[in-house]
Design a protein around this nucleic acid. Sequence first.
RNA 1: GCACCGAUGGUCUAGUGGCAUGACUUUGGCCUUCCAAGCCAAUAGCCCGGGUUCAAUUCCCGGUCGGUGCACCA
Length: 571
Amino acid sequence: MADVYDKVMELAKRRGFVWPSSEIYGSVAGLIDYGPLGAMMKRKIENLWRDYYVAREGYFEIECPTVGEEAIYIASGHVKGFADKMVQCPHCKEYHRADHVCEAHNIEHAETKTLGELTEILRNLPCPACGKTFDGAEAHYFNLMFHTTIGPGSQRTGYLRPETAQGIFTDFGRLLRFYRDKLPFGTVQIGKSYRNEISPRQGMIRLREFTQAEAEIFVHPQHKEHPNFGRYADRVVPLRGIKQQENDEEPVAITIGEAVKSGIVANEYVGYYIALTHDFLIACGADPARIRFRQHLPDERAHYATDCWDAEVLSARFGWVEVVGIADRTDYDLKAHAAQSGDSFTAFIPYDEEKKVREMKIVADMGALGPKFKGKAKAVAELLAASKPTENGAEIVLDGEKILIPPELYKVREQETVIRGEEVRPHVIEPSYGIDRILYSVLEHAFDEEDVDGETRTVLRISKKIAPVQVAVLPLMSRDGLDTVALELMAEIQDEGLIAQYDDSGAIGRRYRRQDEIGTPFAVTVDYDTKEDNTVTLRERDSMKQIRIPKDHLAETLRQLIRGKVAFENL
RNA sequence: GCACCGAUGGUCUAGUGGCAUGACUUUGGCCUUCCAAGCCAAUAGCCCGGGUUCAAUUCCCGGUCGGUGCACCA
């Protein structure tokens, strides 16, 4: 069954987009190599992403290690949440959560038991699937994080990061200062993340090492209005909300402004990035008819997220594939890191107007309290501050003992305190992109075969913004000086910062086909007229149309074509 | 991780207990004045480990990778 997937992967392998990793030693499932064209294309997708998030949104990029110490992932919940105690039934081979099986048989606190204890208990318990006992089976941990040790002596436990986000969260304090203590601000990271999948299949869709591009945008919890919401408010996006999924309906095409106003999308930030993602995926060359946004159902949503949408792209082989997740993660992560680290993970937000609060303050006379209460003096002073004194003195309870502190041991002052603002723990809006999946989706959507004069023409109609090779330079004949002129042009084009490929092998038609197959958007051909009038042929991949342009303008024209500043048909 | 199926030049593939097919691609040459033309030549392959055998790419066992189903996938 040669479906599009087979054809795309065959082409990807043959032409140097994607290869199985360490193929000569047998490869490892879930690990891939990007070949020369794949690596170039991936870099261009990442750079296009930077255009959107770094250049246009103003979110600076940081780079954190892929290896992180244990504390990070204890705080994030990955050490616990990503590790289940599993047991496999020796009879029917079914997998079960070891603690769940125990708890179903009234074993209390099974979750906290060790693997040995669980194995011991399970020995006499029946498998929920087949009814036979687990005798002979051993409970084992199952954590999807790659584990390692940092430094000699295996002293420190480390993990390969399962997402790039945690690096941004742990740098929160530094980032807040970098952005001069103001909300909102955003930070992005593009890099590798790791998940030790049990059974990674589906080619490039499910990898053990994959590239994420994530933005973490820190916003005031009460102000989730995006400052540039107007830019995307009128953009129509296919949304498949909870309602459509429950009624098994098609996505609704609706403006993002309307979606936010009607409450389908939780807030402007989430809506804004849904629209931006729509824009970005189409700019990469994904087919608009095969993109939709699906809202997470309440029961699949992570417990901390208030709203979460996946950008899904339709694949002929895999169905709708999640390529981007856009979540409002609330303050879950910052709260978790605050608890683990002791730092506050808050921003000080000044009020528009200072608040003045009049209050009674009870100030202890430490000179008198000290000798009287000795080591307990400090505790007494603190209790005094919170007490409500009467004329006879203030009654406090110290270690269960009621003590009356006479008025001469403290002073009561009425005092005005100025409150200039408050500490606010931001909420996090997180658009998270799976670059590998996007690259595959674009390849699949761009793959096209058409019949030209009885021959099959294979052409990758990828966006000229992410095509690995941008221009092919072809001498019609590799003689009569045509090759010399072509090589000169080649150098000029490369000087312009474009990626060009020179090809003088075989008939001209064959060379066009070669370039079509790797998605090169433009080809320049030097022919005999070039020597007469200094013009060259410029051919466009998608239409196969050709025009002649003066070779002096070539490099500049190409640059404008590729940046989308001018259209081929207007030349 | 389980079950079933598969693995042969770069790609697709034929086939076999004893010299391993063909096509396409690629490279060089001839030819060729714009869309995979033709001719000549060259390069290049039986997934890995063990077993059976005089001899294994072929048969057997184990593994790896890929596909499918199950399980897993905050």
